[in-house]
C-alpha cells in the first residue's frame, strides 16, 4: 500500500508539472524547455529556507513562487523576441543556467552535496508526516491546478491564447496585446512548476542538482506530448503513463541491465509514434 501511495505522490508532482507546462506549450504554443529550471527553483527555495532559515513549508513555497514569478517575467520578455525552434533553444538555456547555479553556488545550495533533512508541511499544528496525508495534500493541489487549467481553457483568455498559438499576427489584429498574454501565462506556469518542485523537495527530503537538469524538462515535454496537448485530462494521463511505465517494467522482472535501456527506448518510440500517427497526443486538442 505504502508503495502505491508513494507512486501516487510522484504522480501528483508530475501531474502538476504536466498541467503547468501544457498551459504554455499546449494552450499557447510556446515550446518551453525552461520548466526544469522553475521546478528546481521551487524545490531549492523550500530546501534552503526550511533547513537553513527555519521557514515553514508554506512560507518557503511562497518565496519560491515569488522567485519564479520574477524570473519568468524577465525571461519571458527575452523569450518573446524568439519564435518556434529558437524559443525552445533559448528557453533550454535557462535550464542550463539554473542547473549551473544550483551546482556551483555552493555557499547557498551546497552544490553537488545537496540539501537533506527537508521537512514536511503543517497546517494548524497538523504535520503531513504520513505518506497518506502528504498524498492527500498533493492531490488537492492537482485538483486546484486542473481547475485552473479548465478555467483558463474555457475563458476568453484561453481563447486568445489558442488563437495566438496558431496565428499571432491575426490575434493582434483582432485587438489582443499578445505579448502580455504570453508573458502572463508563462509566469503563471512557472509559478505552478515551482509549487511542484516545492512538493518534490519536501517529499523526497533530500535534493541535489541532478534532479533539475535539462533532461527533466524534456521528460515533462514527453508527458504532455503523449498525454495530449492543450488538455487538462491529457496532462494527467501523460503523467500517469510515463510514471507507471518504468514501475511496470520493474515488476516485469526484466534483467536490470536491460530495464533502464528499454525504458528509454520505449519513451523514444512513444514520442516518434505519437508524432507520426497522433500528433495531438492521446487526449490532445491541439495538433502541432
Amino acid at each position: 500500500m505504502e508503495y502505491f501511495i508513494n507512486i501516487g505522490i510522484l504522480f501528483c508532482i508530475y501531474a502538476m508539472l504536466a498541467l503547468s507546462l501544457n498551459m504554455v506549450v499546449g494552450l499557447s504554443g510556446l515550446v518551453s524547455l525552461a520548466h526544469a529550471a522553475f521546478y528546481g527553483i521551487g524545490a531549492y527555495a523550500v530546501a534552503i529556507l526550511m533547513t537553513a532559515q527555519g521557514f515553514n513549508f508554506w512560507g518557503a513555497m511562497c518565496v519560491g513562487m515569488l522567485l519564479n514569478g520574477i524570473t519568468a517575467f524577465i525571461v519571458g520578455k527575452i523569450l518573446s523576441k524568439f519564435k518556434g525552434d529558437y524559443y525552445a533553444i533559448v528557453s533550454a538555456g535557462l535550464s542550463v543556467i539554473v542547473f549551473s547555479v544550483l551546482l556551483n553556488f555552493k555557499s547557498l545550495t551546497k552544490g553537488p552535496l545537496g540539501i537533506y533533512g527537508i521537512g514536511k508541511p503543517a497546517i494548524a499544528g497538523f504535520h503531513f508526516y504520513s505518506s497518506a496525508s502528504f498524498l492527500a495534500l498533493a492531490f488537492l493541489f492537482v485538483v486546484l491546478f486542473y481547475a485552473l487549467f479548465v478555467l483558463i481553457d474555457k475563458s476568453s483568455f484561453g481563447r486568445a491564447l489558442k488563437s495566438l498559438r496558431e496565428d499571432e499576427v491575426l490575434t493582434v489584429s483582432l485587438g489582443y496585446k499578445t505579448t502580455k498574454y504570453k508573458s502572463l501565462i508563462f509566469t503563471l506556469s512557472a509559478i505552478m512548476a515551482g509549487v511542484a518542485g516545492s512538493f518534490f523537495a519536501s517529499y523526497i527530503a533530500f535534493i541535489d542538482p541532478t534532479s533539475f537538469q535539462l533532461a527533466e524538462g524534456i521528460f515533462f515535454f514527453t508527458m504532455i506530448t503523449v498525454g495530449g496537448l492543450s488538455s487538462a485530462f491529457g496532462s494527467v494521463v501523460g503523467a500517469a503513463l510515463l510514471l507507471t511505465l518504468p514501475e511496470a517494467l520493474r515488476f516485469l522482472g526484466l534483467p536490470y541491465e536491460t530495464a533502464a535501456q528499454l525504458q528509454q527506448l520505449i519513451y523514444g518510440a512513444l514520442l516518434v509514434l505519437m508524432m507520426a500517427f497522433r500528433p495531438q497526443g492521446l487526449f490532445g486538442k491541439f495538433r502541432v
Partner: peptide
C-alpha cells in the same frame, strides 16, 4: 470577446 487581460480570465 473581452481583450483586457485581467477581465478576460473571468469571462
Amino acid at each position: 470577446a473581452q481583450n483586457k487581460i485581467e477581465k478576460s480570465l473571468f469571462e
